[in-house]
Design a protein around this nucleic acid. Structure first.
Lengths: 253, 253
DNA sequence: GTGATGCGTTGCAGTTTGTGCAACGATCAT
DNA sequence: ATGATCGTTGCACAAACTGCAACGCATCAC
């Protein structure tokens, strides 16, 4: 909507790929060098880009700080955290919390496994949306037309033989998840890793977040992990209750 | 330098404080609502702000993703990480990696303590610059005029009785750190936490990052922690060697 | 040492683009 | 129903952004 701002912001993902000099930025934006310079300067003043010693630009420190603050302002996260820790203390496995936001699912909290073999993931990283158990729960709750349109726009990478292959299969899976009220990922992302997940609902019943417990095969089998389902669901329900009970942002209908 | 972009970017820190509606954003920017709307829309299209269900705006998901990518592009981090892990395996304490960037020092990597009592910190969070051992090393290496000007612009909060009280004291401490080539923070930030830190240097000898080992008093005394200094320095030197050896960004003079 | 090339930077004139206004519509409370 | 509040839209004006061309300053070749 605003050309200048639009151009300026387009610089950020561009620099996310790696440092670039003025000329490269100008070229990829399709603008004159002097224009690119002014945009970069403005970004620089706000700390979003940094000029390294070889004069090239890269993403700046303020970005971390902003992402940091943004994270800490998510109220679900704050409420959920102690519950996640408690669950981790009981079962010992990695516990994740994730939310959906405009086509993406991302982890917003994580409590590390106490076993030596750990799963790779990082807070803020987008989730493998077509296979992750938390993603299924979050997408399953979208209104039908949006769910459909999202599902059709997605890529379906075959991480493993058990990965969701295409949109119809995904939509069927979502329907199932929606009905049963919980979800799993049995080796759909990494051959040896399984997850069970449960939804966290707001006062109006809509899913606002999802949580999961993940563990590699070498620690517990998929069947053993499934025995944790009641615990996971109970924890998610506890969080739902607390979230609906006393949040200043949303109110009951 | 570019008014429009400047205004748009000013919205981000504003939203970092918490969600806000259109009117609030317009007021705090000192512009008309319609202007604020257009800026917010542009930010929205780039995923930097998100419109929550109550119509208020808050920081968006793309911000996490960007911060994430930015982080992964820091080559020092990549090189240092395995060394940090190895050090952590030997001593068990929390290991941090930090860099300096335009007036701020921030953690860019962390390996958690294996002891139950852990220190609070988070990657991306700005460091308590006047007391942290890593900050001392990074600032001590700045050219004299910049060091001085930075030191004079800082606040000197008295976290504890041992916190650096003011600029002259800080500059003296930096001089000392500069000469000895390592630094400590003995209860200057949290009464019960001590750190020892060592610098990581590029091919030209300038300090590009700093690493530290931290532990609370209840686990090891300050004296015991200091016995780790040789290990910390050796690790830092190893990283320096590897960083200077094969980096495509900088070259030896 | 000298000229050439490449890059970032600056001042300027033209005009695209962003701005504020005012009016509209939706939502909610009274 | 009625009024208030807030987000949204179209429009005319002018401010702000753009691209150009020229400059300074490196590095590099010869």
């Amino acid at each position: 909507m605003s050309q200048t701002v639009d151009r300026a912001l387009s610089i950020l993902p561009l620099l996310a790929e790696g440092p670039a000099d003025l000329g490269q930025v100008a070229d990829r934006l399709g603008v004159h060098k002097s224009t690119a310079l002014r945009l970069l300067r403005t970004l620089h003043e706000h700390g979003l880009v940094y000029r390294q010693s070889d004069q090239r630009y890269r993403l700046g420190a303020r970005l971390f700080a902003l992402a940091q603050e943004a994270m800490e302002n998510l109220d679900i996260r704050e409420i959920a955290h102690p519950h996640l820790v408690r669950l981790n203390e009981r079962c010992g496995h990695t516990v994740h919390l994730a939310v959906y936001e405009e086509g993406e699912v991302l982890y917003i909290d994580k409590v590390e496994s106490r076993y030596p073999v750990r799963m790779y993931s990082r807070i803020g990283k987008p989730v493998a949306i077509t296979v992750a158990a938390v993603a299924k729960l979050l997408l399953a709750d979208l209104p039908e037309p949006e769910r459909r349109s999202v599902a059709e726009k997605l890529d379906y990478p075959l991480y493993t033989a058990r990965s969701t292959p295409n949109a119809p299969a995904f939509l069927r899976e979502l329907e199932k998840v929606r009905e049963q009220g919980w979800a799993t990922d049995l080796g759909g992302h990494e051959e040896s890793i399984n997850c069970v997940a449960a939804p966290i609902r707001g006062a109006d019943g809509r899913v606002v977040a999802a949580m999961s417990v993940s563990a590699p095969n070498v620690v517990v089998t998929a069947d053993e992990l499934l025995t944790l389902l009641p615990q996971v669901r109970r924890t998610a329900d506890d969080i739902s209750g607390e979230y609906s009970g006393r949040t200043p942002v949303k109110e009951a209908p």
